[in-house]
């Protein structure tokens, strides 16, 4: 295996262009596990954790641009323009993992259990990909095509992710067997964006990709239209239950070692009710 330490983004992209068998490594929290267990050993890796350009974080004029090398630990320390993203970051692994792991790694691996991914989907975020031949900007929901499958070509790097500041009414929830060091059994991100009269709801560990619960989103927007955006009035229990069942219906869960499909649907409906009630009070 060849190891290239990239100092610049252009250098990393040139290396990837010249070596179709090379893979990027940043925090190592996914790729090193594969390598330590002999499940996967690339012919070459390019270390991208020293590239200054990938560490930039811009929050200005209602817009957020988070470069791929921003770690979960930084999301907890710095202004990142999304309370739900901060909550999701805090549930990732442990301090050790949060110091190493990056948003770009979550997007690169693109597991349905990736903790930041439901937040990106609920925020309608875009993924910025770059190769030696230029940039392209893709909505997250088009970027992810299956479990650990994305439209990224091997010569491209995820360089950043971008979203509109959607205000404070955002909640991330994750169900697991303990609080720390846990892969989500199911997770949910919910955004009530009063300025755009928009509700975004996305589900993790609930199907082959992150799933947008669009029926539930429209129902939530209808509830907000009735009670008034920004009026901080929690809808009736019946309305919240209906929202929860629409979220559960949107999921496409399976039975696996972490939980059953039935449990996942149940926990999603509970999380949706609680998240909506909580978010409305934050608006």
């Amino acid at each position: 295996m060849d190891v290239e330490i990239a100092r610049t983004l252009d250098g990393a992209l040139a290396y990837l262009a010249s070596r179709p068998d090379a893979e990027p490594i940043a925090g190592g929290t996914d790729l090193m596990v594969e390598m330590n267990f002999g499940r996967h050993r690339p012919k070459a890796v390019v270390a991208i954790d020293r590239i200054d350009e990938l560490r930039e974080l811009l929050v200005a004029h209602g817009r957020v641009r988070m470069s791929a090398g921003v770690t979960y630990a930084r999301m907890l320390r710095e202004e990142i323009g999304s309370p739900a993203m901060r909550q999701a970051a805090r549930t990732v692994g442990s301090p050790q993992i949060r110091n190493a792991g990056t948003i770009g790694g979550n997007l690169g691996t693109c597991s349905p259990a990736g903790d930041t991914l439901p937040v990106l989907a609920a925020l309608d975020a875009s993924v910025v990909l770059r190769s030696a031949s230029g940039d392209r900007r893709v909505p997250f929901t088009q970027y992810m095509t299956g479990p650990k499958k994305t439209i990224r070509r091997h010569d491209e790097l995820v360089v950043a992710v971008e979203w509109n500041d959607a205000g404070d009414a955002q909640v991330f929830m994750k169900a697991g067997t303990r609080n720390a060091m846990v892969i989500a059994v199911a997770s949910l991100a919910l955004v009530v964006d009063g300025r755009r009269s928009r509700v975004g709801i996305a589900l993790g560990s609930s199907g082959p990709t992150i799933i947008r619960a669009t029926e539930a989103e429209r129902f939530g927007e209808g509830l907000m239209d009735e009670t008034g955006w920004g009026r901080r009035r929690v809808p009736s229990d019946a309305a919240l239950a209906e929202l929860g069942s629409r979220v559960a219906a949107a999921a496409r869960p399976i039975d696996d070692v972490r939980g059953t499909a039935a449990y996942r649907r149940h926990v999603l409906s509970v999380m949706a009710r609680r998240a909506f009630a909580r978010a409305v009070l934050l608006a």
Partner: peptide, 29 residues
């Protein structure tokens, strides 16, 4: 564990706490 789950290999890398099992040695140059 060799997979970042147990913390027994914790070290400081440029002052930050990490699992050394998840750091590629050659990339720590």
């Amino acid at each position: 564990c060799d997979q970042g789950e147990c913390g027994s290999c914790s070290v400081l890398l440029d002052g930050e706490l990490v699992c050394s099992c998840l750091v590629l040695a050659a990339a720590a140059e």
